[in-house]
Simulated scan of single mutants.
Amino acid sequence: MDLELIRQEIDMIDAQLVALLEKRMALVSQVVAYKKATGKAVLDTSREQIVLEKVASRVVNKEFEETIVATFSDIMKSSRAYQSSKLA
């Protein structure tokens, strides 16, 4: 496979990831509304740990596990920042 074909495949996957991240953030918006109504804190470390453990367990190629878990950690960090901005 040549580099241009590989990059085209990456671009297609990136488009799918963007769509999925938008769906995830729409759900995060619902979480914000819930937390606002109930006074819950943005950070729930036990929930985040559970999510990261699930992510790690779903990685088939363990060579990628650390990177994928770090990516999800970054996603949750960005989600917390979004939540904080909406709750301020």
Rank of each mutant, 00 (worst) to 15 (best):
M1K: 10
E4C: 03
L5H: 14
L5K: 15
L5I: 11
L5W: 09
L5Q: 15
L5C: 13
Q8D: 13
E9A: 13
E9G: 15
D11P: 01
M12H: 11
I13F: 04
D14E: 12
A15W: 03
Q16D: 13
A19F: 00
A19Q: 06
E22L: 09
M25V: 00
A26D: 10
V28D: 00
S29P: 01
V31K: 09
V31Q: 09
V31S: 12
A33W: 01
Y34A: 13
K35A: 08
K36C: 04
K36L: 02
A37N: 06
A37T: 03
T38G: 01
K40M: 08
A41Y: 04
V42T: 04
V42P: 02
L43D: 14
L43F: 14
D44R: 00
D44P: 02
D44V: 00
T45V: 12
R47V: 14
R47N: 12
E48R: 15
Q49D: 07
I50K: 14
I50P: 06
I50T: 15
I50M: 15
V51P: 00
E53N: 11
V55R: 01
V59Y: 06
K62Q: 15
K62L: 08
F64Y: 14
E65M: 08
E66M: 01
T67E: 08
T67V: 10
I68F: 01
I68E: 00
V69M: 04
V69C: 01
A70H: 12
F72H: 09
S73N: 15
S73R: 13
S73C: 07
I75Y: 08
M76I: 15
M76W: 07
K77D: 02
K77P: 01
S78D: 15
S79V: 11
A81P: 05
Y82S: 14
Q83N: 08
S84L: 13
S85Q: 11
K86V: 09
A88Q: 11
